[in-house]
């Protein structure tokens, strides 16, 4: 779902960078403190899995397709700070090694998907724990995907107002929230359901293998 380069204005990505930079510092320090010989290989594999999940296309109605995110899985297994750091690495790898996504859009994507997505997944999972593990995981992942999609839709939808020529012509992404909200939220309601099922499968497996390291 992440935004490519050229659609986001400097008025958006520069403040996002200013916001993301201290969060990366905090996440990096927390990761360094927790990272041991047990967690390193698991985190590396799950981060690589998140990278690959974002390349697996899920078919959508109308012949289109979307991709899973994988940040909820990282958050439920390793906690939100670690998930944020790991997903930021995924985005960086996509931008500088594969050329997918974008380097200017990276802070926006990292905040919307990595930070908010991870915290939403963990908050919903903890808050809905009384429903039992399966519904809590499914709803947490779906809610996380939808929240990230909502933020990205709003960020994209704000571009015509944030960056436009004196005559009002947009300079970056041209459509407002009336277009971006349904365009992102409707497909992601289905993508989120697919990702929730996939995450539940892997989360249960991780629990059986005692790989969970959730503390945040």
């Amino acid at each position: 779902m992440h935004i490519p380069d050229g659609l986001i204005s400097p008025q958006t990505y520069l403040p996002a960078l200013a916001l993301a930079a201290p969060l990366w510092l905090v996440a990096g320090r927390r990761l360094r403190d927790r990272l041991g010989d047990e967690m390193l290989p698991r985190l590396a594999v799950f981060t690589a899995l998140a990278f690959l999940l974002s390349t697996v296309m899920l078919p959508l109605p109308g012949g289109t397709s979307g991709h899973a995110v994988g940040v909820s899985l990282l958050a439920l297994v390793f906690g939100p700070w670690t998930a944020f750091m790991a997903y930021s690495l995924v985005l960086l790898l996509q931008a500088v090694v594969v050329g997918a996504g974008g380097i200017t859009a990276l802070p926006v994507n990292a905040l919307a998907i990595g930070f908010v997505g991870a915290w939403t997944a963990v908050a919903l999972y903890r808050g809905l724990g009384f429903l039992g593990e399966t519904p809590a995981v499914l709803l947490a992942v779906w809610g996380s995907v939808m929240t990230s999609a909502l933020i990205l839709a709003l960020v994209l939808g704000m571009q015509p107002w944030l960056a436009h020529a004196p005559d009002g012509t947009p300079r970056f992404f041209p459509f407002g929230p009336a277009v971006t909200l349904p365009a992102l939220l409707i497909p992601h309601a289905l993508i989120g359901a697919g990702e929730a099922a996939l995450t539940l499968l892997i989360f249960r497996h991780a629990r059986r293998r005692r790989w969970l390291a959730v503390r945040g």
Binding site: P4, D5, G6, L7, A95, V96, V97, V98, G99, G102, I103, T104, T169, P170, R171, F172, P174
Partner: peptide, 29 residues
Amino acid sequence: PAWGFLLLLNLRVFLLALLTSWMLRDVRI
């Protein structure tokens, strides 16, 4: 129809893709 905007957007996104492809090809990360 705002042709100027379409030209601007397409050129900008294409230039950014071109720059990234060039970097990916020639820079060993």
